[in-house]
């Protein structure tokens, strides 16, 4: 590589220096979290005692971890219902728009991206009265949160599915299936959905990540979810709260690495080259304009 470099690419050294420095800075807080979970209260030295205490709580201390298990359980139930909303309400609507009313694509996109512009803390002001009505109909069980969370999730679910639809010729394939005599349900089940596996799976994973990370709405509607339970537990046992937080971060990271690998290597390898209009969208259909949800 003695030729002078042209274009925007960095030199090897520059790349390594930047990535290593930034990487280290970003690892510090996470490493600190891990180190914290190993500390002993009031003493020096390290041990895994706090990890053990999750499953065998010390009765003398009287710490009760049941809120966090309950919170995780509630969050998982909300996950399932939110995923159901995405699959049974959003996905069919997107297909309907694509197949029958393409001119509404813009409107649908606008509606789906809209929740990004409205901070969840603002929506919460409106959810408080709305949920008084919801409670009258469905009761105030934690799963009802899924309706509100489903809105927060819309941009995250919409993006990967929309990117996927762009990447294959939905209309032509469907027309081909129909003209060969397939009924609509057959065309959808055997032609459309198999082609949308990637987008749908990304949407589901992102939905799961967003639901597990949701704090704002749950806290204002006084529901016990994973995040609110974390904060609650941290007041009595910050070690255990940190263990759960770190585990959740690692879990989400692994989940997203899997989406990434899944997107890169298609299992079955039937369609190797997906058409990428303009070649600009990220490989993982990451929700590009993504403010607000991060820490909300």
């Amino acid at each position: 590589m003695s030729a002078p470099r042209i274009g925007a690419e960095p030199s090897r050294t520059a790349r390594l220096v930047i990535l290593i420095v930034v990487g280290l800075v970003f690892i510090v807080p996470l490493a600190a979290m891990f180190q914290f979970t190993l500390r002993l209260a009031g003493k020096s030295g390290y041990s895994f005692i706090h990890y053990v205490s999750i499953f065998h709580p010390d009765p003398a201390l009287g710490t009760d971890y049941s809120p966090i298990w309950q919170g995780i359980q509630n969050s998982l139930v909300i996950c399932v219902i939110t995923v159901a909303i995405v699959m049974l309400v959003l996905l069919p609507t997107m297909l309907l728009v694509e197949l029958r009313y393409p001119r509404f694509r813009r409107i649908l996109e606008f509606v789906c991206i809209l929740p990004i512009t409205i901070p969840s803390i603002v929506l919460v002001v409106g959810y408080v009265p709305v949920y008084q009505r919801v409670a009258a109909v469905f009761g105030s069980a934690p799963w009802t949160l899924a309706f509100a969370v489903g809105i927060i999730v819309l941009p995250y679910a919409y993006r990967p599915i929309a990117t996927n639809i762009q990447a294959f010729d939905l209309v032509t394939l469907t027309e081909a299936a129909r003209s060969l005599g397939a009924s609509w349900p057959t065309a959808i089940a055997r032609v459309i959905l198999p082609n949308m596996r990637r987008g749908v799976i990304s949407a589901v994973f992102l939905t799961v990540a967003v639901v597990l990370g949701e704090y704002t709405i749950a806290s204002f509607l006084s529901q016990n979810t994973f995040q609110t339970a974390l904060l609650l537990i941290s007041q009595t046992d910050s070690y255990v709260a940190t263990i759960f937080a770190l585990t959740a971060l690692v879990f989400a990271f692994v989940l997203l690495v899997i989406i990434g690998r899944f997107g890169a290597v298609r299992p079955g390898g039937r369609v190797k080259k997906t058409r990428r209009p303009r070649g600009t969208e990220p490989r993982i259909p990451l929700p590009t304009p993504t403010p607000a949800r991060s820490a909300s």
Partner: peptide, 9 residues
């Protein structure tokens, strides 16, 4: 993960 999942953690 860090941009969208962080929050309380």
């Amino acid at each position: 993960v860090l941009a969208q999942f962080g929050g309380v953690m």
